[in-house]
Design a binder for these strands. Structure first.
Length: 462
RNA sequence: GGCGAGUUGGCGGAGUGGUGACGCAGCGGAUUGCAAAUCCGUGUACAUGAGUUCGAUUCUCAUACUCGCCUCCA
């Protein structure tokens, strides 16, 4: 069996991955807060952990891996949107979840086995909070329930911060009802127009962090294998999850391996709304970037490093994929290359896997290229349509086909008569319109038409 | 202020204690009437300083610079 090694944020080392239960490898990844279209930064963890999901399924078997990714559908941003639009919260979150799955599907991401929504696990959260109170790790105060950070000895072990340092940093919300400024909210009161549920502490709603602890416990039990998410979630979100779960169920519980993907930048700069380099996956798709190309760009940088989204990379990725699609379209699928599997098994070295694919292409091992690329979620049977020429996709009508065929034939005859002035002028007209010509010896050139062919220019050839 | 990451050839970007990937671009060649496309070939790069070592781009320490997170946006 392939030995998988993963970098564990908790231990800061690359470790051999040993599942708790080889028949049911469990992975939990923090999903989106569903109030708007996913931006491309949201998509990085989705793609990263999709590759891991595929690798785990490959190694342990499809039926022996369970992947859960939550939807956070209780959040002030959602409340704000509901207020602005007058729509119901459920309406907004349902729509946003639909968008999310659609957009991530376009990136070739498989859907997780489980997709729990926070609002469907409120009783579990309440039960967990009650247990934390009983054990002295939490306390109610003015309609809130707070986690007593000082009581949990290992607080800060994931992000390697000490309580004292964090308080010195002083970027915490100070509130009179908190015993300690670092204490974080497990439950908070809701006013009439905010979403809420009845609880032992009054009408209210959960804090952000408790949902992942409660849902992973319900779905996976006290221990599971992998917990993933973006690096930005390491603190405070994941630190707080660990505190809640381990305080509740014991020090040796919860996720065994923590994985965090680095952040994404755009053209060398942090993506932000104010810089205007902030865009959604949908916008990118609508601009004509195939999802497969976006995915390829993501995979070309290791997940542990900051990734820079640039137009140049997208163009290169597009050219490579076009080449690969052309080579593999009519090829029966082979088996994935050992090199690709090993690269992925080595802490998800997706770039290394792509390199192996490049070599397979050079060696003309297209059957293995196809299978290997599919391990990465690219070159799938349903993914290559964009790479076909317009003619292959039936976009070109007979009229235009005839114009081009005639022109190519005329050019061929001119060449036979060594009338190069005529043949070159026809060639220039064709290439100017976007037609790609492949000259052949002693017969008319083969041609293909990309999507952006300028039909109006072809009229001149009539 | 706290935490962390990075610095590799023109660009992107892996990796390795000793034969220095890969892609793009460039250059040379084949091919072509000329091109395009395609194919073949081609590049001693590893921030700086010191240390460890027979030997370091790779390990250790320091310095400089860049970047990210901790703050609505992942």
């Amino acid at each position: 069996m392939t030995e998988i090694k993963l970098y564990n944020t908790l231990t800061k080392t690359k470790e051999v991955f040993t599942p708790l239960d080889i028949d049911n490898v469990r992975m939990y990844v923090c999903g989106p807060t569903v109030y708007d279209r996913a931006h491309i930064g949201n998509a990085r963890p989705v793609v990263v952990f999709d590759v891991l999901f595929r690798l785990l399924r490959h190694v342990y078997g499809e039926d022996h891996v369970t992947y859960a990714r939550n939807f956070t559908d209780v959040d002030d941003k959602i409340n704000a949107k509901a207020e602005q639009t007058g729509r119901s919260i459920r309406d907004i979150t349902d729509e946003t979840i639909g968008w999310f799955l659609e957009d991530m599907g376009a990136l070739g991401a498989l859907e997780p086995d489980l997709a729990p929504r926070a609002t469907e696990y409120i009783p579990e959260m309440i039960a967990m909070i009650e247990e934390l109170i009983e054990k002295g790790f939490a306390y109610p105060a003015e309609g809130h329930v707070l986690f007593r950070v000082k009581e949990y000895q290992n607080y800060g072990k994931l992000s390697r911060r000490s309580l004292d340092d964090m308080i010195a940093g002083a970027r915490v919300e100070v509130a009179p009802y908190k015993e300690n400024p670092m204490d974080f909210v497990l439950w908070k009161p809701s006013s009439g127009d905010q979403p809420g549920w009845e609880s032992p502490w009054g009408y209210g709603r959960p804090g952000w962090h408790i949902e992942c602890s409660a849902m992973s416990h319900k779905l996976f039990g006290e221990k599971f294998d992998i917990h993933g998410g973006g690096l930005d979630l390491q603190f405070p979100h994941h630190e707080n999850e660990i505190a809640q779960s381990c305080a509740c169920y014991g020090e040796d519980t919860f996720a065994q391996v923590w994985m965090h993907n680095e952040m994404l930048q755009v053209e060398g700069k942090k993506m932000s709304k104010s810089l205007g380099n902030f865009f959604s996956v949908r916008e990118l798709l609508d601009q004509g970037y195939p999802g497969e190309v976006i995915r390829f760009v993501f995979l070309s940088t290791h997940y542990s490093k900051p990734m820079d989204w640039t137009e140049k990379k997208a163009k290169e990725a597009e050219a490579t994929l076009r080449k690969w699609h052309k080579a593999t379209t009519d090829i029966a699928i082979g088996i994935p290359s050992v090199g690709v599997i090993n690269a992925l098994a080595d802490d998800l070295n997706t770039h290394g896997a792509i390199t192996v694919c490049q070599k397979l292409y050079s060696k003309r091992d297209f059957a293995s290229l196809k299978a290997s690329a599919q391990m990465l979620g690219i070159l799938g049977a349903d993914q290559g349509d964009w790479a076909k020429s317009a003619d292959d996709r039936g976009i070109i009508n007979d009229d235009i086909r005839e114009i081009i065929t005639n022109a190519v034939f005329k050019r061929h005859n001119a060449k036979l008569q060594k009338d190069f002035a005529t043949s070159d002028s026809i060639r220039d007209l064709l290439t100017d319109a976007g037609v790609i010509l492949h000259d052949q010896k002693d017969k008319p050139a083969q041609w293909e038409i990309p999507d952006d062919v300028d039909v109006s220019k072809l009229e001149a050839l009539k």
